[in-house]
Amino acid sequence: MELITYWISILPELGNGVINTLIMTFLAVSMSAVLAVILAMGRMYGPRIISTLCKWYIEFFRGTPLLAQLFIIYYGLPSWGLNFSSFTSAVLAFGLNSGAYVAEYLRGAVQSIDKGQMTAGLAMGMTKFTAIRKIILPQALRFVIPPWSNDVIYTLKYTSIAFLVGAQELMSKAKIIASFNFRFIDTFVFVAIIYLILVLLLTLFFNWLERKLKIPGFEIKN
């Protein structure tokens, strides 16, 4: 019972953190979505040099830890004259990182679409760009929802490392509260429950989204 009253007493403060976590996730995910489309299309349909650059970008961001990328942006870039606040650095790191992952999912989705559709589009007199925009992307973006939703949940979970560069979010609030009250376990169990609820809500939302956007008969076959 005492534990419940403690949890209620720290809820308002943690609630602020939750809001920051959600804002951070939302910004990073939006950035990642735009970046992923550019990277995936660049890698598949771009001229050789752009394709190679996109590939290197993806390799770099998928092959190194997110924490190292965050440190590069927050501690490293200032030596090149680029200063970002801890919050901006975190959003940039999560967005740039997640963009690389989502680009690969998107590439997988595009490759599962029959090549003949692109040929047909070109034969109808569409430009490559129009064919991508009108034919390929609407299908690929639907196919990519399940892996993409996983990535959004990943991003939500990984925002917790933003506090290592001092950004204000759920984890940093929890750390402050825990040290102040000297109740680490009680606080972090509550934080764990909050994260579980957030992940559950996101999962439900994406299941709904997937159902809503489904075109009957055009699912990926297993």
Binding site: M171, I185, Y195
Partner: peptide, 11 residues
């Protein structure tokens, strides 16, 4: 799978 690695680490 749902908990951030950092939260598990701290616990």
């Amino acid at each position: 799978r749902s908990l951030p690695a950092l939260v598990i680490l701290y616990l």
